[in-house]
C-alpha cells in the first residue's frame, strides 16, 4: 500500500541533527516554521547533504557549499541515507 510505504519511509527518516557525521544523506522532507528559509539557502527535498560536525551549531555541506545551522533548524530537516 502506498500510504504504508510512505509512512514507513517517513519513520525511517532521521532528522539532520540525529544523522551521523561524515555520511551522505538525501533530504526527504523539510517541515517546520523555518522551512522556507531552509529551502531558500539550499536545504531542499532531493538535495544531498553531508554532515560534518555535531553540536549546538552544526556544519554541513549541501551541493559543495558549507552551511552552519543551529540544532533546532536541523531538527526541521528529515534525511535518509543517500
Amino acid at each position: 500500500m502506498p500510504t504504508f510505504a510512505s509512512d514507513l519511509e517517513r519513520d525511517s527518516a532521521l532528522t539532520l541533527s540525529q544523522a551521523a557525521i561524515g555520511c551522505e544523506f538525501q533530504i526527504r522532507e523539510v517541515e517546520g516554521p523555518a522551512c522556507r528559509q531552509l529551502r531558500d539557502i539550499g536545504f531542499c527535498e532531493q538535495m544531498r547533504v553531508k554532515k560534518l560536525t555535531n553540536g549546538r551549531t552544526m556544519l554541513c555541506t549541501v551541493c559543495g557549499t558549507r552551511l552552519a545551522l543551529s540544532k533546532d533548524l536541523a531538527d526541521q530537516i528529515r534525511v535518509v541515507p543517500a
Binding site: 523555518a34 528559509q37 539557502i41 557549499t65 558549507r66 552551511l67 552552519a68 545551522l69 543551529s70 533548524l73
Partner: peptide
Amino acid sequence: EAPQFLLELPP
C-alpha cells in the same frame, strides 16, 4: 523564540 543560526561559509 530562541535565536537561530543559518549561515553560508564561503570557500
